[in-house]
Amino acid sequence: MSAALTGLRPEAAHRPRTRLRAVPTWLLIAPALLYMGVVFLLPLANTAWVSFSDPMPGLHNYIEVLTTPAYLRIYRNTTLMALLVTGICIVMAYPLALYIARAGGAVGAVLLAATGLSFWISFLVRTYAWTVILGSRGPVSQVARWMGYDPPPVLLFTSAASIIGMTHILLPFMVLSIYVVLARIDPVLLRAASGLGATRGQTFRQVVLPLSMPGIISGSLLVFVFCLGFYVTPALIGSPRDLMVASLIATQIEDLLAFGTASAMAMLLLGATLLMLAVYDRALGLANLMK
């Protein structure tokens, strides 16, 4: 609320001040700001600087990235993978979120806890689990062999493995994003729709789905942005031929010592991410994400 408005309200003006309020706000948030500045903004500024200056000043790093077909293919590939993972997450998460929201009570709480539990298992561990599951001696191959596919299809170290792994790791974000919105829908609205003549399908399409859109969008944004910069999972179980941007950047630094090119690539990735956030903000307001 603006200062002018609070000034008009006597009870706000006369509110007793707690001792904490005597400390200026900037002092309270100073440690956080300092930390963010040192570990985040400084390196970011450095990366931006390197992207324009290494090995010589100018836009040549950006021009190189944006004109090299191999690099562009990787950006496109990354975007497609991210879109695919986002899409799969929506399709898989929605029914689960709907079920949790409908079940409520103990069943809902258990399912919700199970969904949240995966946040506590390191995604490195979860990614390694896939190397076992998808490996040539893993259960998937065994089943394929049993069904007569011999040799069984290769899954590990393919883009499919990346997609499976990333979907697995990011699914809980989508489930929770959608669940939060679904749980807030007043059940009386569903009764009202039914009383007004809507079938279950119509109630879902015309009431539940539109009202859960903010959850789908915020979940998609999270998953998509995560995917764009995902490094560990594609690097460990993905295809070495179909790189994603993060792996490409790592290669530039570790193998080629091309810091300028790598920085430009990172800045472009950041730019794409910020663009996504801007689009989301236009559509729904970023503040909604915080609720």
């Binding site: 007043d186 009386v188 609205l189 009764r191 009202a192 729709a193 039914s194 009383g195 007004l196 003549g197 809507a198 079938t199 009431v207 539109p210 009202l211």
Partner: peptide, 20 residues
């Protein structure tokens, strides 16, 4: 019959308007 086949208009206490 399920509610949607009864053709009965009901007004709920808290109105239950669709917010979207």
């Amino acid at each position: 019959l399920p509610p949607h086949e009864r053709n009965i208009g009901m007004m709920f206490q808290n109105y239950a308007l669709f917010p979207h």
